[in-house]
Design a protein around this nucleic acid. Structure first.
Length: 500
RNA sequence: GCUCCCGUAGUCUAGUCCGGUCAAGGAUAUCGGGCCUUCGACCCGACAACGCGGGUUCGAAUCCCGCCGGGAGCACCA
């Protein structure tokens, strides 16, 4: 290496070097992740996980998992089953958490803080119907209750807590500037009433805080030093700061990232939820969910997802990236590990006239570049299965069974029965190369595809000796991973398609 | 409509805070070539970008103003 010249090369920031967090000190950083338990973690959540984990490690800090399980809404329900699913997802991603909290346990704390804010005269209990409230907010009009005396606010708040109001009848609102330029920020609702059954705490609470108020409380109470969240939550930052200013508290700084979408992954949490629950999807690891679990199932490693995510840094731009970018990231990691196998999607039987009888099998390397991965025996013989499309594409031509022998294909394919071809030597010729499986030894394979469908195909015999979790490259098809729950020795061998 | 954010090649991204070393770096895609009995991997090469218009300056991707384009928010969801 030319050392002197190397120094002149502009330093390129690697994926292991993201900007420092403001005011961060090693050993004194506390971060938190706050998933809403309504679905498994998916590729869209990767940034939250990877970035929080990255900074936690960078500063040797703590990472808290705080389930944002306030009661939600009719459209957005909490599902208790997802608490464990999400924790398993984090384990799978090798992201340990230092503590786990549930918002739904922390209501007394939220109420106590509410009293503090009420006492400041900064709030009022609004009795407007939701629609009226929104119209007034848009128009910048104060409703009658805004001027209510402090004593009345206290009384009405107590009435909310004591069950004197039905859902939707009263909310606690924060007084901001009604003439403020941003309509979204005007007199936000802090607490509302809901009778929805909560899977953890049932009907124990009926007055629930909204996200921004609960976090204004919890980020302080939990000692969070930096809030890392998507930029869809910037208005919530402002709310938290507003509340903290009101109470004379200096809260943690906020750091954001833009929305990340994978082009091929049209993620709909509600659709996934419905399909998983109905059984139409094969659980939360169904490839159609694009969940992190489903990516692992496909043989896409945690490291690949991490590198993929890190490459976007803390960019605030909303981006849409083709899945190919993730695949490319994974390919370089998976390629050295994946043993090569021949696989045929739509096999057709071909009998070869003049095939050398002594050529009953051939020894092939498991990996073209890594001899240390050993060899496998592929049964040959005079009868083969070949890809139908390839045979049809080369009528009357000479083709080569890869690594084995050349064949002359017939000009016309028979309507039924086996196709007859003629042996044409073993020398390596520059002719189309086909995958093949000797009829004397094949393994049935079931491939789970990205669209959730199963394809049945044939592979060379050695596939029968696969083990769960093994990675293979089906040559010219793509990388696959043997399903974790496949029982060795049973047929078909079940694999999940990964990517090209 | 209002508020905030963003705008570097097909797609991402570095650089923008502290203007010159950026006639703009990397990744991915695409196209060539090499290697190899894969359409995979690897190696070599090519293509290709600072949204537009003003201003400040000796000098602007970087600072200022205007415009245009894109996204998000304007929920008693998170």
């Amino acid at each position: 290496m030319g050392g002197a010249e190397a120094a002149a090369v502009r330093p390129v920031r690697g994926v292991d070097d993201l900007p420092e967090l403001p005011g961060a000190t090693r050993g004194a950083v506390v971060l938190r992740m706050a998933p809403f338990p309504s679905g498994a973690l998916h590729i869209g959540n990767a940034r939250m996980i990877v970035l929080n984990d990255y900074y936690r490690r960078k500063y040797d800090g703590k990472l808290l998992l705080v389930f944002d399980d306030t009661v939600g809404s009719e459209e957005k329900r909490v599902d208790a089953e997802l608490f464990d699913v999400i924790r398993a997802d984090l384990d799978r991603c090798e992201v340990p958490v230092d503590a786990v909290y549930y918002k739904s346990d922390r209501l007394p704390m939220h109420y106590a803080w509410a009293e503090r804010v009420i006492a400041l005269g900064a709030t009022y209990v609004c009795l407007c119907p939701a629609a009226t409230l929104q119209e007034n907010r848009r128009a910048g009009i104060a409703c009658a209750e805004r001027a209510q005396p402090l004593g009345e606010t206290h009384a009405l708040w107590k009435k909310m807590l004591d069950g004197g109001f039905g859902p939707g009848d009263a909310v606690l609102r924060l007084k901001t500037d009604l003439a403020g330029p941003d309509p979204a920020f005007r007199d936000r609702v802090l607490f509302r009433i809901s009778d929805l059954d909560h899977p953890r705490v049932g009907h124990r609470w009926r007055v629930w805080p909204l996200l921004e108020f609960s976090w204004a409380v919890d980020d302080i109470e939990l000692g969070v030093t930096h809030v890392l969240r998507g930029k869809d939550l910037v208005m919530e930052d402002r709310m938290q700061r507003y509340l903290w200013d009101l109470l004379g508290i200096r809260g943690p700084p906020f750091v954001h990232w833009g929305l990340l979408r994978v082009r091929e992954a049209k993620i709909s949490k509600s659709k996934s939820y419905a399909e998983v629950k109905s059984g139409l999807y094969d659980g939360w690891a169904d490839p159609r969910t694009w969940s992190l679990a489903s990516l692992m199932r496909r043989g896409i490693s945690v490291e690949s997802v991490r590198a993929f995510t890190m490459s976007f840094g803390l960019s605030l731009a909303d981006i849409e990236v083709p899945a190919e970018t993730l695949y490319a990231e994974n390919r370089v990691r998976i390629d050295p590990l994946a043993r090569r196998r021949m696989y045929l999607d739509d096999p057709v039987e071909v009998v070869v006239d003049g095939f050398p009888p002594e050529l009953t099998s051939v020894e092939l390397p498991n990996h073209p570049d890594r001899p240390e991965l050993g060899m496998r025996t592929v049964p040959a013989g005079g009868t083969f299965y070949l890809p139908r499309a390839d045979v049809a594409a080369h009528p009357g031509e000479t083709v080569r069974l890869k690594d084995l022998a050349n064949l002359d294909l017939p000009a016309r394919l028979p309507v039924s029965g086996p196709i007859r071809a003629t042996f044409a030597g073993r020398e390596n010729r520059r002719v189309p190369r086909l995958q093949w499986a000797g009829a004397a030894g094949v393994a049935q394979v079931d491939v789970l595809d990205l669209d959730g469908r199963h394809r049945q195909g044939l592979a060379e015999a050695s596939m029968a000796r696969a083990a769960p979790g093994d990675l293979y490259q089906f040559e010219r098809v793509g990388f696959v991973r043997v399903e974790s729950d496949w029982v060795p020795g049973t047929s078909p061998v079940r694999v999940c398609y990964g990517h090209p």
